[in-house]
Nucleic acid binder design. Sequence first.
RNA 1: GGUCCCGUCGUCCAGAGGCCUAGGACGCCGGCCUUUCAAGCCGGAAACGCCGGUUCGAAUCCGGUCGGGACUGCCA
Length: 473
Amino acid sequence: MTVRVRVAPSPTGNLHVGTARAALFNWLYARANDGVFIVRSDDTDLERSTKEYEDGILDSLLWLGLDWDEGVSVGGPHGSYRQSERFERYREVAEQLVASGAAYYDDRAAEELEELRKTAQAEGKHPGHYIRRPDQAATSGVIRLSIPQDSAVEFDDMIRGHVSFEPQDVDDFVILRTNGIPTYHLASTVDDVDYEITHVARGEDLLPSTPKHMLIARAMGADEPVFAHLPLLFGTDGKKLSKRHSATSLTEYRDAGFLADAVFNYLCLLGWSVDGDTTIFSREQAIEAFDLADVSKNPATFDPEKLEWMNGEYIRAMDLPAFMAQALPHIEKSVGRALDDAEIESFREIAALVQERTKLLPEAAEQVRFLFGNVDEYDQKSWDKVMTKDGVAEILGAASTRLSGVERWAADAIEDSLRSMLSEMEIGVGKGLQPMRVAVTGSSVSPPLFESMAALGKQRTIDRLDAARAHLG
RNA sequence: GGUCCCGUCGUCCAGAGGCCUAGGACGCCGGCCUUUCAAGCCGGAAACGCCGGUUCGAAUCCGGUCGGGACUGCCA
């Protein structure tokens, strides 16, 4: 039997990290088993769903490298993969279930239902305990599924093992609203049945809904899929991951300069691992080793710091052209214009040095900014720390003079010249170079100085040394 | 309140009865390297929630307890 899995985001926002990880695990499972990965749009919430969000979610999935075999935008043998285009089908199923006796119309008022819930709670029972088929049948209103009270609903979860629910603890829930629009439970289950989904791997928050979905599938005369309930993702404070902690949507990570490969790798580690001591691994390795049954039961805390570290690992692992290609858009955005060929060439001169100092792409832009414009503002902290000391003016002046005599403008020549100068002046290298660094790059933190000067060019370097000395007052 | 799920370093993951004086990674601390900052290298602190039971032997199995979480809607 071919493995058929799906991810079903609701287009009511951007792709959430949690949904992305669920998509990732489903994708891995499909790829590991030569299965089919399906993307469906769960847009039954007509109020909040938008096409823009749907497009954004699909973009994010593709960015992460998760391609799908069937679904929205690529189509497939099952017609539409957008729930809003299948309302007729859901209504048809709901009515069939009424006809077969598995479901019933209910026109009771909200207040009446609320009373039943309160009563059950007061008796220490599940709130839905008394939400059952009333004696006299209604012919309009919502449609509820009638929960058979004779046996427990049990299943073997791939991750959690055997799980069992008593029927008294499952209420006769609504499958079709008064307005004829299906609830999530109905639409999702009908789709899973119609699309012949074999494995449903989704967040643990849906575990309590699973008996409902199984019962709908059974009432339809279908086999239920195998379930695998993934552990939830939390923020660093141990609470459910939300905007308060860090970015929660994939697009924010992409914009912040994270690499798709790094995010992919990191997300894999939230609830799973290749083995006991491999942290960095490729998609191929992940596919090779992945099994839903190996996923952890424990909720995982999303740790932005570890993701950043990992991103740095991936940045350093790139070859130079790839790094430059990734960094360039961020540099141009920072500089506010496109770079010309000569400027790109000067970037190339120190790109390798910048690369090993970059954890997030925008940091690369900060490091090379000094090459593409004048340093008209010095970093205040750097200035206060370095330029207010005695002897700074002498050092800058001497360096300016000395460098103007350097014939071959290259890092090693600059280094020789400056080192011998400081040696003659009996000034330590650490002390002596910092004022030049601030003068040339505007900050006490920068790529290595000699290479930076080489990339900047002789005249501009000397000009900046002079300008900084003048700035001393 | 009820139902269900979960419980190994601060965090993520290894560990599927003896290989565990519990391993790897991030972070943290110290050192080396060093022109700043990174990177790199070396070293360190840091966990089996608790109580019983099974067993020659338990992080691993069972029970209880405590703690955390999810759900409890005509949201998904």
